[in-house]
Computed example of a mutant assay.
Amino acid sequence: MESVHTSELLGRPVAKAWNAALAGTRQAKGVPAGTPGHLAVPVAGDSDEAKRVAMRLVDEIDPGTISRQATAGHGGPRRERAFGA
């Protein structure tokens, strides 16, 4: 319901992407998009265009190191940005 509320508040579609792989799996098996064996990241949303934007961002943005990501999750500082679809 949080995403529905956010979408209504912004007046824009919302898509969510989340990491479903453990850090060790990503470190051992993580390869760039287009490489055989590339790990998939789940993306959900009601708008096909918003999902395409989210998938492109997942493939294009380097999230940095595991230690940097540890501070971006629950309880840590978060950076959020609205992307137009």
Rank of each mutant, 00 (worst) to 15 (best):
M1Y: 02
E2L: 11
S3V: 08
S3H: 03
H5I: 13
H5F: 09
H5G: 08
T6K: 07
T6N: 05
S7P: 00
S7R: 03
S7L: 04
E8M: 08
E8P: 00
L9V: 12
L10G: 07
L10K: 07
L10E: 08
L10V: 05
G11Q: 05
G11S: 04
G11L: 06
G11F: 03
R12D: 07
R12Q: 14
V14F: 07
V14Y: 00
V14H: 03
V14A: 05
V14M: 06
V14E: 05
A15G: 07
A15W: 01
K16I: 14
A17E: 03
A17T: 04
A17W: 04
W18M: 08
W18E: 08
N19P: 00
N19H: 02
A20N: 09
A20Q: 03
A21T: 01
A21Y: 01
A21C: 06
A21R: 00
L22F: 03
L22N: 05
A23G: 02
G24Y: 02
G24W: 00
T25G: 01
R26F: 00
R26T: 06
A28N: 10
K29L: 13
K29C: 07
K29P: 00
G30A: 03
G30H: 04
G30L: 02
G34Q: 09
G34R: 11
G34T: 12
T35E: 13
T35C: 09
G37P: 01
G37V: 07
L39Y: 02
L39C: 03
L39N: 02
A40T: 12
A40E: 12
V41I: 13
V41E: 00
P42F: 02
P42A: 02
P42I: 03
V43P: 01
V43C: 06
A44C: 11
D46A: 11
D46L: 12
D46G: 15
S47K: 01
D48K: 11
E49H: 07
E49F: 04
E49P: 00
A50G: 05
A50D: 01
A50K: 01
K51I: 12
K51L: 10
K51P: 06
K51M: 15
R52L: 12
V53D: 04
V53E: 13
V53Y: 06
M55E: 15
R56K: 13
R56T: 13
L57W: 07
L57I: 14
L57N: 11
L57K: 13
V58Y: 03
D59L: 08
E60C: 05
I61L: 15
I61F: 08
I61G: 06
D62Q: 10
P63C: 08
G64D: 06
G64F: 00
G64A: 09
G64E: 05
T65G: 05
I66D: 14
I66Q: 14
S67V: 12
S67E: 15
S67M: 12
R68N: 10
R68W: 09
R68E: 15
R68Q: 14
Q69F: 02
Q69N: 15
Q69Y: 04
Q69A: 12
T71G: 13
T71S: 14
T71K: 14
A72Q: 12
H74A: 14
G76H: 10
G76E: 08
P77L: 06
P77W: 04
R78W: 05
R78T: 10
R79A: 08
R79W: 04
E80N: 10
E80W: 08
E80K: 08
R81L: 14
F83M: 15
G84V: 14
G84I: 13
G84P: 09
A85Q: 09
A85C: 11
A85N: 11
